[in-house]
Amino acid sequence: MQRSLHIVPELCTGCLQCEMACSYDNEGVFNPAKSRIKVFNFHDQGRFVPYTCTQCAEAWCMMACPVDAISVDAATGAKVVSDVLCVGCKVCTIACPFGTVNYNSTSGKVIKCDLCEGDPECAKACPTSAIQWVDANWTGLDRMRTWAAKTDAGTQATAH
């Protein structure tokens, strides 16, 4: 069964445990700036919205990579960056219309959510279940997917 990250912003308190867990697990540092999930603060409304890669079917990042450094993990469906192959050209960071691929100037490579090989640290760290790890067929990801399809409609024409 493939699973997805399901985010419920209404439950987020802005504690940033997810960002700490993500940056520590993936980059070895407690540094939100190196986290692949980010909590956005709508301070005028007192709301927090965690957001990260939805592993979208369009895979703009993967399609844009000039050196084949992004591939699909068959087990999780995650689009995963190979640190060995990535040259740091950053084209994927402008190609991703969700802004969820970022350049890490320390490593000279790009970073994005890889679903932690099927055991995402952010979901484990979240104390309020604002980030859930659920059956991919169930989630409210449709909202995100709708917007994925809207970007560049027509350039995504596929074979029928």
């Binding site: 991703c96 802004g99 917007w147």
Partner: peptide, 15 residues
Amino acid sequence: RTEHVGVLRGLIQSR
């Protein structure tokens, strides 16, 4: 700025 720049594409191209 290198954080989340791709969303500029999203904002423009999703109109």
